[in-house]
Design a protein around this nucleic acid. Structure first.
Lengths: 202, 202
DNA sequence: AGTAGCACTTAACAGCGTTAAGGAGAGTGC
DNA sequence: GCACTCTCCTTAACGCTGTTAAGTGCTACT
């Protein structure tokens, strides 16, 4: 897992072949089949390990308000996904192998229901923020594989030229394809404001 | 494009090989390279065509309120993505080839700014709802490739057994992995409520 | 009649995930 | 001390993938 995750950051999801991983481990590719049923099982395990490291790296306070908790949990998730090239795609294409993820979820749901939400509302709130975060980072990593790098084909000047006939869309694009940190926060704030308003809690 | 999109629904993104498409067209695989630079260019064109059909299939009223417009546009997007197996993954892994998509975007932005939002706010509102919808459908299609079908490995009974120690998470899961239509609407409503509240418009 | 360009074929390449068969080495039971 | 079992790996191969190179008819124009 350690080798696979390190390699993921170097070569990306597309370059992450069984032969590459095996070579890094001084082993031949079929040897991996002793440890994993197939490549998907390996990716599942990678996603689970990413999640484990995320939980370990996110400090959660039991006295968080529901707003604080949703903010922290989702920021933590985004940070974890951004820590790996194609992190969001690996994540959303895989399933967790254990039940550890349920632990944090249980905790969040307990906190949200204690704050006055019904279970259904709490589930909707966590799920919606989760899906937003995942969608956001997926797009973000499509443009910016690792913080600092930029994928080719996203030339903003050319985009501006092409969209000359659509001034609002052109200006909005400049807005959208830059400063991801701030824009993520704004979107998340919208969602949390919506939860408060719609479910009548603060 | 027509053949490729039809085939996508039959065999899924994984089964959509150049040889399959070529066979369906009574042609050999390398012939496709006369028309497309590479497979990604073909996928980009497929995504663009999906978008075109979406626009054609979504009735937009110029007198929509901003809430109606955001609802319609995102429902239309979800419906379009659900119309193709792995639609969301094709979509988020590709880039539009033309500038047609800017037209609808321009329209939405004009409507939102006319309703009292700044351009930055309008961009944030559209982008956040878009990313939510994309994230939602990506997960939805991971469980349910086409409406009616269900991917294997999502046995709710077994899930309930595994999560016996986490009653809230178990109950929330039953909530989350079913009735996608309703849950999508609820999440979208949360977001739109948040936009109204945060930006002080109705 | 000759030339240019279009749309295609055949052949091949390296690389992919995966399977089958077998082998070295440690540990256990008699 | 020998046989057996289990673990972890290797070698060889399979069918498949996207992609390139080279060549082949066909149409249209000069």
């Amino acid at each position: 897992m350690d080798t696979a995750l390190r390699l993921l950051n170097e070569v990306g999801l597309e370059g992450l072949t069984l032969r590459t991983i095996a070579r890094e481990l001084d082993v031949k590719a079929p040897a991996l089949y002793w440890h994993f049923k197939d490549k998907q099982a390996l990716l599942d395990e990678m996603a689970t390990e990413m999640y484990r490291r995320m939980v370990a790296g996110t400090a959660l306070d039991p006295d968080d308000t529901w707003r604080e908790r949703l903010l922290k949990a989702n920021r933590g998730l985004r940070a974890a996904l951004l820590g790996y090239r194609d992190g969001a795609r690996v994540f959303s294409g895989s399933r967790f192998t254990g039940t550890e993820h349920a632990e944090q979820m249980e905790d969040v749901l307990r906190l949200l229901t204690a704050a006055g939400l019904t279970l259904a509302q709490a589930a909707r709130a966590t799920s919606t923020t989760y899906l937003y975060t995942l969608g956001f980072v997926t797009e973000e990593q499509g443009v910016q594989p690792l913080p600092g790098e930029r994928r080719e084909g996203y030339d903003m000047d050319e985009r501006a030229r092409l969209l000359a006939d659509f001034p609002l869309a052109a200006a909005a694009g400049a807005e959208i394809f830059a400063d991801y940190d701030r824009h993520y926060e704004e979107g998340l704030a919208l969602l949390i404001a919506g939860i408060g308003a719609q479910y009548g809690i603060d």
